[in-house]
Every structure is written in structure tokens, then in C-alpha cells.
């Protein structure tokens, strides 16, 4: 319950809601087909990494939880117009829950990065890919009765797009922190 030990003030609520809405709005963008990469890249996980890197670990994770809460209520805000409780019961639901861990880990590492660019990229890679896959792949292995290796292989189609997004998130985070220093958690 360490997340809840600090009282939540108005600004925190509004910031988390704003970033949850940002993650939703990024899902409204049509998926971008990128040459060489087999699946179209959606911008939604970019919002997850930004939430962690800009808002910090705790608030970034809260923003993702809020976003998932709104999806669970029945609003079709996941990319591709998916929503409702169904998305939390499929074999790829672990990746959605992994977003919470992803935003948190990105936030922890980004706060320690002192805004140095290579460290920000590492923060987005480890948080936005490492932590997300660390939840998503075991979930898929259990839900679809695969071995971990098979689940990992099946997830690899998303890796190139996620790497592009992690770099984009790091570039954007550095620019945002320069342009709005008060955003620093």
C-alpha cells in the first residue's frame, strides 16, 4: 500500500486523468504501417512510457491504472476500438496489465537518469519493453498453454515497433522536460 501512503492531491488526480486521456487519444491515431515491421505500430504504448517518464513512477502507474479502469467500464479506447471487460480475459491481457509496471519502471529509471539522453532511452526500453513483456509473456504462456520460449517468440513481432516507440518517448521526454521544467516529478 506504499502507493497510497502519500495523500493524493487535486493536481495529481488531474495529471493522472490527463495522461490517461492522452493514452486514450493516442489509441485513436490510426496504426502506422512501418516498412520491414510485420505488424502496424500503434502509438498507445508511447503514451504509457511518456506517463512514467513525465509524471514519475507512482503517478505514471496511476495514470495507466485509470486508463485501464475506463476501458474496463466499457469504453472502446484501446487501439482498434477495443474495450470492455473482454480485453482483460484474452491471452494478450498480460501486456495491458504490464503497462502499469511499464510506466512505473520507466518512471523510476527516468527519475534517476538526470535527463541524460542515453539513460532516458534505457529507461524507456527497460520500462516500456522489459517490464511490459515481463508481465505479458508469462501471462500469455499460462493463458494459451505455451512454453515461455514459444510465448516470447510470438511476442517478438511487436519488438521492432516497441523499440522505435521507446526511442521516440525518450526524445519527447527530454524536450518536454526542457519546455516545461515544472513537469519534473
Amino acid at each position: 500500500m506504499s502507493v497510497l501512503s502519500k495523500p493524493v492531491d487535486v493536481r495529481t488526480v488531474v495529471r493522472c486523468a490527463m495522461f490517461a486521456a492522452l493514452i486514450a487519444a493516442l489509441g485513436l491515431l490510426p496504426p502506422i504501417p512501418v516498412p520491414i515491421i510485420p505488424v502496424p505500430v500503434t502509438a498507445q504504448t508511447l503514451g504509457v512510457m511518456l506517463a512514467g517518464a513525465v509524471l514519475g513512477a507512482r503517478n505514471g502507474a496511476l495514470a495507466v491504472i485509470l486508463f485501464l479502469g475506463v476501458v474496463a467500464l466499457g469504453f472502446p479506447l484501446l487501439s482498434g476500438g477495443r474495450g470492455g471487460l473482454g480485453v482483460f480475459f484474452g491471452p494478450s491481457a498480460g501486456f495491458l496489465l504490464g503497462w502499469v509496471a511499464g510506466a512505473f519502471v520507466t518512471g523510476v529509471l527516468a527519475a534517476a537518469s538526470e535527463c541524460k539522453f542515453p539513460r532516458l532511452i534505457i529507461a524507456c526500453l527497460v520500462g516500456g519493453i522489459g517490464a511490459v513483456y515481463a508481465v505479458g509473456i508469462p501471462w500469455m504462456a499460462v493463458a494459451a498453454d505455451l512454453t515461455m520460449v514459444q510465448a516470447a517468440v510470438a511476442s517478438m513481432v511487436f519488438l521492432p515497433g516497441d523499440i522505435l516507440k521507446a526511442v521516440a518517448a525518450a526524445v519527447a521526454t527530454r524536450a518536454i522536460r526542457r519546455g516545461y521544467p515544472a513537469a519534473h516529478p
Binding site: V13, V14, C16, A17, M18, A20, A21, A24, A25, L66, F67, G69, V70, L73, F75, L77
Partner: peptide, 10 residues
Amino acid sequence: FALVFVIRLV
């Protein structure tokens, strides 16, 4: 409030 606010902000 936060959940409804998200929907309003999208």
C-alpha cells in the same frame, strides 16, 4: 471522479 474526468478529457 477521476474515471469520469478521463472520459471528459479524451
